[in-house]
Computed example of a mutant assay.
Amino acid sequence: MHLTDWIGAIAGVVGTVVAVGALVVAGRANARSSKANSIAQEALDAQKLALPPPWSSPELEDDGKRYSIRNTSGRTIIVAELASRPGGDVSVFIPPDLPARIQHGDVLYFTAIRGGNISNTINAVSLGWAFEDEPDLEHTTERRY
């Protein structure tokens, strides 16, 4: 065997050792990355649980017909839809003019005249909305009253 053959064989062995070492290092980095992603997702889930709900429960105003729902999200919301859910004892439902821009702390009003057929279900409204800075991410929230 010539010297060049030995050098080639040694270079091949060294290359294989380096490649195996790189695979081991990459596997460890992948495991650490996976663990970091898991921890980040858990933190995001915990943060979402700690946030207040975006809408308060509807509150009956003094006139006995008009209800208000407060934006408690901490952000400005665009409401695209507000509808009375089937069931309950609402005979007349009048939503506000929509779309409506509701800043944090402001309220959205709707009118619900109760006294329709008595039902075993609860009165509820469904809101279709999005945060003003995320208009493509639509949400639906149901609130009972």
Rank of each mutant, 00 (worst) to 15 (best):
R114K: 12
D136V: 09
A112S: 05
E42D: 14
W129L: 00
W129R: 04
P95E: 02
F110D: 04
P53Q: 09
V107D: 13
T141I: 02
L127T: 01
E61G: 08
E61F: 07
T121M: 05
L98V: 03
N37E: 10
G64M: 00
R114H: 12
T76A: 13
P53F: 10
I77W: 03
G64V: 01
S119A: 04
G115T: 08
D45N: 14
N123M: 01
Q41L: 09
P86T: 08
W129Y: 05
Y109K: 14
F93T: 00
Y67K: 03
T76W: 07
T72M: 12
G88F: 00
D63F: 05
F93M: 04
R66N: 15
E42S: 15
E132Y: 11
I94L: 11
D106F: 14
I122E: 06
A112W: 01
I77T: 07
G88P: 04
I102V: 15
S84M: 12
A50F: 12
G74V: 00
K65Y: 14
P96Q: 04
L98A: 04
G87R: 02
A130P: 10
L44Y: 15
A50S: 14
L137S: 15
S73C: 09
R66A: 09
I94H: 08
S119V: 03
W55G: 01
K48L: 12
P54F: 04
V92L: 05
I77D: 02
N37V: 11
E61T: 07
K48Y: 10
S56K: 03
V92P: 07
F93K: 00
P53E: 11
G116P: 10
L108G: 12
S119N: 06
Y109A: 13
G87F: 00
N123E: 05
N117H: 09
I77V: 13
V107I: 14
L51F: 14
G87N: 01
E138D: 15
F110M: 04
I78Q: 11
P99C: 01
E59M: 06
P54R: 05
H104L: 11
S84G: 10
T141A: 07
E132N: 11
W129T: 00
D136N: 15
A80H: 11
A46Y: 03
I77P: 06
T72K: 07
D106A: 15
R144V: 06
Y109E: 13
D62W: 11
E132C: 09
D89T: 08
L108R: 01
E59P: 05
R75K: 13
A40P: 11
H139Y: 08
W129K: 03
N117S: 12
D97P: 13
S73K: 05
G128L: 04
D106I: 13
F93S: 01
S84E: 09
R85F: 06
E42L: 14
F93H: 00
T121N: 06
